[in-house]
Design a protein around this nucleic acid. Structure first.
Lengths: 200, 200
DNA sequence: TAGGGATTTTCATCCATTGAAGTTTTGCAG
DNA sequence: CTGCAAAACTTCAATGGATGAAAATCCCTA
């Protein structure tokens, strides 16, 4: 199953990611060219594009696996569990994952920094965020097909993720620490669950 | 105040927008080059970039004015009005504006179609959406400075816009009409206000 | 171990975007 | 009016991301 071909592909992919992250860190995202990344990873520039669709995408190499975890968590919801409870569990779990995985942890700060400062990366990140929300909404709709229509599912996911994301970004923008950001995320999630009407 | 220079500039800007929209409509976004747009508007391609930062930006020429209306509405909130009520008014008003303005109305379907199908436009749209949410959050924070802290303001805006946007997109994705989308938007907004816990 | 599909490299090209330098147009002071 | 400075444009050149096609390699399996 795991032939040399497959192993080599993974090694190349990893080499590209490592090279890219290191160069982004040293010189900045826009300052490093694909040629440099490819050279560093010892492949041709053309090959880069058979691994990643764009320069931006290298930074989001783990998006798929994160999403897999989330949808899986939704699909295997506890019977009888309320939508809101599941969603809150999901938010907490996400915060957990973010500070788990060794490979990811190392460059989390770098990625954060880059995404916060490079416009094209912000755009890419938002796009991914949005897509995953749609996926989550569908997963939720499936898991609660008896009590949730498509619009409610979408609204629920949108409200929850929307609230947490904006709270986090706003906190970071205001110079808050990661801890404060996490705190803000949880508070925002609870606010979304309780309802905006409950403010004040 | 409105000298010849200024008038000419506006005419050029408008010419670029018109040319771009027409070409996008006829040949598609990615298929039309800046050279063609510039030629159509009778300016050099270089000049295009003194009016718009990117090819994508032409499509969002009215973003600023929309935002102005919204923040103004927030700033002039009725004294004693509850945050939630103001926000719901805001959502309804936004839906209104979208089907108002003559210039905008004409190409609304085109824009929708393009944004829904061209990845780079989706990304740009999301970026703008996000920025405006941050602006709205700040406006809200200012308007309700006595009863709302930054995190709550951000969470409120994020939840409301997040819910409505995802509900709308989800509806459209599923082949729903614009009317159904509007309906979904209002329902999502109300759900966000009432709280996700109220589902089911 | 030879053939065949998968990967990679090479080569060529397109086009968005940007900088520099020079030209035309407009607004305004004299 | 006339000349001048600023604003707006054009031309020219270059960079760099992205993609297509064909040739060269590499790995797997019969």
């Amino acid at each position: 199953m795991v032939g040399l071909r497959e192993r080599k592909k993974q090694r190349t992919r990893r080499a590209l990611i490592d090279a890219a992250l290191r160069l982004f860190d040293e010189k900045g995202f826009e300052e490093t060219t694909l040629a440099e990344i490819a050279a560093e990873a010892e492949v041709s520039t053309r090959t880069f594009f058979s691994y990643f669709a764009s320069k931006e995408d290298v930074l989001f190499f783990d998006g798929a696996s994160r999403m897999a975890l989330a949808t899986e968590m939704i699909a295997s919801r506890m019977p009888g569990e309320h939508v809101g409870d599941l969603l809150l569990r999901l938010v907490r779990a996400s915060l957990q994952w973010a500070s788990d995985d060794d490979f990811r942890l190392l460059d989390a700060p770098l990625r954060m920094r880059l995404i916060m400062t490079v416009p094209s990366l912000q755009a890419r990140a938002l796009h991914l965020l949005f897509d995953s929300q749609l996926q989550l909404a569908r997963a939720l709709e499936d898991a609660f097909s008896d009590e949730l229509d498509p619009v409610d599912a979408a609204a629920a996911v949108g409200a929850l993720i929307g609230a947490t994301k904006l709270a986090v970004i706003s906190t970071i923008n205001r110079g808050g620490s990661l801890e404060q950001a996490e705190e803000a995320a949880v508070r925002a999630a609870q606010l979304a669950l309780r309802g905006l009407s409950s403010i004040g």
